[in-house]
Amino acid sequence: MTGSSLWLLPPPSHPLSSILKELITAKIPSHFPHLTSSPSLPPSFFEAHMTLTSEIPPSAYGSNPQAWLDSIPFPPAEQVKLRFGRIKSQDVFHRRCFVSVEYDGVKKVVAKAREHGVEGAGEEDKVDKWLEWWRNEYGAHVSLIYGDEKITEEVMKEIESVVQNAGVKLPEIDNKKGEWDGWEGGVVWLVPTDGPIKDWKPIATRQL
């Protein structure tokens, strides 16, 4: 990935913070080692997050990334509702397996991240066009696996079972009306993502 990214993580005290971390770094790799590592590809462990936007040039935040992050007029926490949908797979390394996220609950925070990180303040038209592309081609999601190995339907069902057994509600599978999993608000990280995955660490953070 070029430049830096803004990520949205669950609040540290939220149960999903530890559940997702264990799924990504331990439970899924132990159940599906062929998907998470290979002789030519070391395991890729990362913090559980939803990417708000990438492609942020370092010039955007300059020498004071924390001040820049604090200046973005994100919506208040109660207007940011990350809700999980189905587990899906795409033929893309960083989206090999992920939990989809409902668009409407995160649209506002994604728009502000894109506006101030890439397009420029006041460029609402550009942001709206990008949002339409992002929703259709990329989509809100929380990745569970980075990798090159294709995932069959049978294995996807096994992954769903592991995720559910870890305590994550998948309402479209469970068919429990009114129940959903996800979180409200969260923590935004500014992360340089143009280097190796093992070096993806925040240089600024902000609680919504």
Rank of each mutant, 00 (worst) to 15 (best):
L144S: 13
H49Q: 11
D104I: 00
E55T: 13
D128L: 01
F93R: 06
I19Y: 11
Y103E: 14
W7I: 02
E179V: 15
R95T: 14
C97Q: 06
H31I: 00
S5D: 05
L8I: 05
S13I: 02
V168Y: 12
D194I: 02
V168L: 07
P57F: 00
A48C: 07
W180T: 15
R135Q: 12
Q90L: 15
A77K: 08
L82K: 10
P65V: 06
V188W: 00
S30C: 09
T36Y: 08
N64Q: 13
S30G: 09
V101R: 14
N175S: 13
S18N: 10
S63H: 13
V127Y: 03
R114F: 04
W180S: 15
R96I: 04
M1S: 11
S100G: 15
K112A: 10
D91P: 01
I19S: 07
I87G: 05
P10I: 01
I72W: 01
W183Q: 10
P57A: 02
V109K: 02
T205W: 01
E115W: 11
P76D: 07
T51K: 01
G105Q: 08
L35V: 12
A166C: 03
P171M: 14
C97T: 15
P33L: 05
I19D: 03
T2R: 01
R95N: 12
H14D: 13
H49W: 11
F98I: 07
A67Y: 06
A113L: 04
W134E: 08
W200M: 04
L20W: 06
G105S: 04
V191T: 04
H49Y: 10
E55K: 09
V106F: 01
E172L: 15
G186I: 08
A166E: 09
L170A: 10
Y146K: 13
H49C: 09
A48D: 03
H49M: 04
V109L: 00
Q90V: 11
K201A: 10
E154L: 05
D181V: 04
V188M: 05
L131Q: 07
W7M: 06
P29R: 05
S30M: 07
E160P: 14
E22L: 10
K27V: 00
V99N: 10
P192W: 01
D91K: 14
T36R: 02
D70R: 06
R114C: 05
T193N: 06
